[in-house]
Design a protein around this nucleic acid. Sequence first.
RNA 1: GCCGACAUAGCUCAGUUGGCUAGAGCAGCUGAUUUGUAAUCAGCAGGCCCGGGGUUCAAAUCCUCGUGUCGGCACCA
Length: 602
Amino acid sequence: MSAIAIKYNDEIVDLVTAEERGIEGEEIELDNSPESLDVLRHSTAHLMAQAIKSLYPDAEFYVGPTVKEGFYYDFKTESEIGEGDLKKIEKQMLSFAKKKYKIEKYEISMDEAKVKFADDHLKLAVMERIPDDIVSIYKQGEFEDLCRGPHLPSIGLIRYFKLTKIAGAYLGGDSKNEMLTRIYGIAFATKDALKAHMDMLAEAAKRDHRKIGNEMKLFTFREEVGAGFPIWLPAGGRLRARLESLLFKAHRKRGYEPVRGPEMLRSDLWKTSGHYQNYGENMYFTKIDDIEFGVKPMNCVGHIKVYEDELHSYRDLPIKYFEYGVVHRHELTGALHGLFRVREFTQDDAHIFCTVDQIEEQIIEVVDFVDKIMSTFNFEYKMMISTKPEKAVGDAEVWEKSEAALIAAMEAHNLPYTIDEGGGAFYGPKIDIKILDAIGREWQCGTIQLDNNLPARFELEYNGEDNEKIQPVMIHRAILGSFERFIGILTEHYAGEFPMFIAPTQVAIVPVAETHKEYAKLLSDKLIDINADSEIYAKNDSLNKRIRTAEKTRVPMIVVLGDEEIENKTVSIRDRRTREQYTISEEEFLTLIQTKINEVNF
RNA sequence: GCCGACAUAGCUCAGUUGGCUAGAGCAGCUGAUUUGUAAUCAGCAGGCCCGGGGUUCAAAUCCUCGUGUCGGCACCA
């Protein structure tokens, strides 16, 4: 196989450019390496543009870069293009690829380029952003495009690709601008790699929590209830209750006190906190007796009111309040997505009030808490420090100090992190925890936010050693983020095959015949005594059918009870997780279930 | 919010260019059967075809305005 590009001083340079510049370097072949795929996908984007231009001659093109999941091209045409047209475009791409046009390159001045693309207002917009005087043009057959490359030597090399979705996208990523059509695609060097990718997408679709949530009857949404308001069904309710109770204990062990603030508070308080000014458009308000109330979008204000209920001494700090706080945020309709983005959700929220000196240890303690929970669910995770955003309250100095404190805590404990400039909350910088699920997707869940602003705005204080009034630091933190989102992620992570300790039902009991029902009930009661939920499948169906029905609920364990079991005081187990079948004594069985339920080390 | 697609029974889906009483499988109910590890058989019931408005002799089907869902964009305290 011959080279498609070279690597010159860490730069990927295509063959035409290398020849033009008279340089040599390590050869890059057409394979599935990241460098190679990047070139391939970029050229595939051009091939797609070529096909679109031939099918829709009025099309104007903006940019067509490669992204993590392939490539896209943004363009505009008067014709209506829908999902059904993707096949047509693919076909056209293949027919161009068969012609094996060489991809040629030449350079012209910016002024010449502006004349050349004078009738394409999108290309002109692209050129506005390029500072250079000379630009390069890539040409394949009749099609020419302004581009910096690198590209394949020929479009004949493009064989294994697929157009995946069509969508709208704002010009330049700015919602003030016009909207263009965007088509996404993916390309690989080999057929197998393309197939593996498509299989992976199918696997992700199978794990979709909305699909599994419906199948397992965990939760639902209803049009008449309103968009973004989840309804928890019994199975989901049981799962959630288990998670809540495990987490409750974990908080108590770490010295958190359960508290609870009201669902709505007077608007004046949201003005003090700054939420009214910064996020008012996303809050729900109501007016009663001429007093305006805002439904809480966060729990901090309630916890501040708890703090204010008594005077505090430096000896009391840190003070940690936690609450499974229900919050409402009016998300834009287009942002709603299953349990991942909803308008009402419950945060595992806590606020730590501490002294400046305690910041580091408190942050480390929370990070450790996060680690315990994430490892229990077999999640790997990354941490990211987010700094001051555009919309922010408080002065620059406070911000700098807070950001420095977060970085210092991470550095002091050699914890790896990255920085997200401008990603902080409006009242303080934060550490975000991003978890990686079973199929390698990233999710943002927990967050640790350092806040000097709300304590100042609410004039919080404690008495210091010399009886002076000192302002405490407030740390906002959530580990799961919200129960909704986290359960959605868990569902996809486990593909609905939840571990025993959070599964909606621990055991399905299938009595062989009518006469065994009584024993099944006795066993079910014993399971309740060890905090395990079970369900008896005693309907008038065949044994096979009932086992099938039980399997379809994804219950971790099925036990079959018949004459043999009753006689020997045993249970016949069908373990869905290990796919094994075996018989053990009833006593051993109960111990086994108990062990599996306690397999948690929060 | 923006671009595009979609909405038929509890669930998953059929339903031709507008034209008979809107169909199927699963789930549900009633019987028969009493089962040893992934679907026993038969019968019954189940629908304001998302909601308003309109076009038409005639609308699940066409138009329009909502609502909701999906794919992205933008947003995410």
